[in-house]
Design a protein around this nucleic acid. Sequence first.
DNA 1: GTTGTGACTACCA
DNA 2: ATGGTAGCCACAA
Length: 105
Amino acid sequence: MNKKDSSLRELIWQVVATIPRGKVASYGQIARLCGYPSHARYVGTTMKDLPRGTKLPWHRVLRSNGAPAFPPGSAAYKKQKELLEREKVIFKGFKVPLKQYQWDA
DNA sequence: GTTGTGACTACCA
DNA sequence: ATGGTAGCCACAA
């Protein structure tokens, strides 16, 4: 498989799906795991297209500094924080302590 | 072909 | 820590 088609999107979704419960990964990390280290932005662009009831753990994907990609206080930010804390990923201020929760694939 | 945009990063003052 | 800048690249207009 994998020639050069735009199924990169599906590859990204597939990788995101493997992030274990209670762990988090960065956009850049996902991009690297997909074999496209320079596509961190595209990972984000792709997440945006996820359907409402998706099974994908999109909330486990954070920025490289451990903060959600949304402005603090926004609805999306709050939802993400809630989903993470539900699985014992506790925030410290505006972000998650990567030392403790970062996923080592 | 060009331009603008964005759920990104790394680097530097 | 905080803010600005530059590099990045798929995608839509």
